[in-house]
Amino acid sequence: MDTAVRPAQAETALLLNHRATRRRRLSRTGRIIGYALLVVAALALLLPFYWMVVSSLKTNNEVYTTPIQWVPKTVVWENYLDIWRKSHMVTWLKNTLILSVAVSALQVFTGSFAAYGFAKVRFPGRDLLFLAYIGTIAVPWQSYMIPQFILMSKLHLSNTLWSIIALQAFSAFGVFLMKQYYETIPNDLSEAARMDGMSEYGIWRRIMLPLSMPALASLTLLTFVNTWNDYLGPLLYLRDPSLWTIQIGLRSFINEYNAEYALIMTGSVLSVLPIALIFLVGQRYFIEGIATTGLKG
């Protein structure tokens, strides 16, 4: 500030300054309240996961005690050895992995392919067809699971891994997500390539696919996790224990060993762990994928 300030001006300046500090102080209390709220929310959100991990490291008798042991007295790793002996975890994980990879690959291919048709090729009836796609997002699967089951049985797909692949790989969600993304890519690019005599398939493969890597990553990860976590599909379609996925396997394990709390928690940790790792690595893509589909409902 100038040294040649008249007293009145200085006073105003002081007053303004004072008001500014007061606002800053208010915003500091606001920030503290904000942090406090976040910490409480985070604790509440994480409590189940904390309990899951801690219980898996206890002996069975220590899971339920009064007062509660928030930290295990001694860390017991045996559960993580026993679970492989007592369950068919390897088969379940193998089946789940096969399904998740196959479904993701198919969904990404058919989804991005169809999205190109919807976003970049103009033909009569296109928008109506897309509406039919979007419309089914509002139809709960639970309402047509019965006719679908009858159909799958007629096609001799039920009680095979193919049923889950068929169930998950052609969802409208993938088409929707990819279309949203393609529409952000300027048409000039494809026009220029068309002028150069590139076919539409060439444009999709050489221009659209490389440019839509983030969206493809989002779709892959979301589909993978969704297939990994699916409980209802395998519940209806996979009767044979050799076909069980981790979710259905864990559920039967819980029913069979219903008093082995520590072991049940160990299985739960193992079923969630791969997803947690994938999520931590690819977080950005999960969040962008959700944001893309949510923005233009």
């Binding site: 058919t110 048709g117 090729v121 039919a132 047509y144």
Partner: peptide, 28 residues
Amino acid sequence: RDTAVGWSFILPNFVGFAVLTLVPVLAL
């Protein structure tokens, strides 16, 4: 030409979608 090309893109997904979603919804 555009109609044929457009459908050719959509078809791989549409076949699965029609058989497994549209038909069951109608059959309901």
